[in-house]
């Protein structure tokens, strides 16, 4: 990486009249204006579409709003936030969610990268293989949950039939005995295609010359992957890691849809204890107990956990993510 010249004066520049600024500083100001113009669609959208609901949602978490009638709303301060720390269900749910994340995210990331490398080879039928890996991702989550419910069905499912091929009939009730295994498989299977495509886009952005040059220098395929491909791919790995963590911690409908029993999503559905995830708990507190205030506080706490994890990742990323330009 080349040294990037730092615009040390940029912040001060904005405070001064333009006429008095030295030419190189004016360049900094112009660059700043360009930046703000470029991001203006998002900035305007954020202020108009996100900021107001965010403020409303935060105020809700400081109240005892029950979703029914604004007439009785009271401000309760931080009570809802403190309550979460004495709620055994919230703690159980957070534990299960973090466990699921710890299993699913690393495994997903490795699988997505491996799939991208596999279908990026010069082999036949790449288009077919890519489509197969990508397909689960395009199935909407409601249908994907049905797919797995039927796949692991004790009597009519393929999984038990395949496991039973070797010997005696297998009659495992997956959704009752191993609900988290099914949830993890559904999540990994469903997300693989999305991550793979992002990796693929990244891989194809790496100039072939880099790898060819290394091969000529006598490096084998593994070494090229380790020393050329992975470092150049690190911003994309980072992207998939962060978005994977965010998505996994917010999982809500999958455990509800995988709950044993009827296909469908209704507020009365309660997933098995093992799949009682954090967002599920918040959902039930909001829509079953009508505790919109407390449920919102739970979700803001989840936001805090996600944010903290992401910030830690950003700090460490300086050591292992390599950008073409310093971000």
């Amino acid at each position: 990486m080349e040294g990037v010249h730092r615009m040390t004066g940029a912040a001060q520049v904005l405070d001064r009249p333009v006429a008095r600024v030295a030419p190189w500083r004016r360049r900094g100001l112009r660059r700043a204006v360009t930046f703000y113009l470029l991001i203006s669609p998002w900035l305007i959208g954020f202020v108009l579409l996100a900021a107001i609901p965010l403020v409303m949602a935060f105020l809700m978490s400081l109240s005892n709003y029950d979703g029914l009638n604004l007439e009785y709303v009271q401000f309760v301060g931080l009570e809802n936030y403190l309550r979460a720390f004495t709620d055994p269900d919230a703690q159980h749910a957070l534990g299960r969610t973090l466990l699921l994340m710890a299993v699913v995210v690393p495994f997903s990331l490795a699988l997505q990268l491996a799939l991208a490398l596999l279908v990026n080879q010069r082999i036949r039928f790449t288009s077919l293989f890519r489509t197969i890996f990508y397909l689960p991702y395009v199935i909407p989550v409601v249908a994907a949950a049905w797919v797995w419910k039927i796949f692991v069905d004790p009597t009519g499912g393929l999984l038990n039939a395949l496991l039973g091929v070797a010997g005696a009939a297998v009659n495992v009730r997956w959704l009752v005995e191993y609900p988290t295994v099914v949830l993890a498989l559904l999540t990994i299977w469903g997300a693989a295609g999305g991550g793979m495509v992002v990796f693929l886009a990244g891989l194809q952005g790496i100039p072939a010359e880099y790898r060819e040059a290394a091969m000529i220098d006598g490096a084998n395929r593994l070494q090229v992957t380790r020393h050329i491909t992975l470092p150049l791919l690190s911003p994309v790995i980072f992207f998939n890691l962060v978005t994977g963590i965010i998505a996994t911690l917010q999982i809500l409908v999958q455990p509800m849809l995988l709950a044993p029993g009827i296909l469908g999503l209704s507020p009365g559905t309660v997933p098995p204890r093992d799949n009682y995830l954090y967002a599920v708990h918040a959902y039930l507190e909001i829509f079953v107990k009508q505790l919109f205030g407390y449920g919102s506080a739970l979700l803001w706490l989840l936001f805090g956990v996600v944010l903290a994890l992401t910030l830690v990742l950003f700090k460490t990323s300086r050591r292992w993510v390599f950008y073409g330009i310093e971000p």
């Binding site: 360009t34 930046f35 965010i246």
Partner: peptide, 28 residues
Amino acid sequence: RHRAPGRGRLFMLVLATLMVPNLVLFVP
């Protein structure tokens, strides 16, 4: 590709909006 004061913080804001659970924004 463009530098400006406040860029880092604004980018964290972009990411932060990604982290807000949708559920909390439903009613608002």
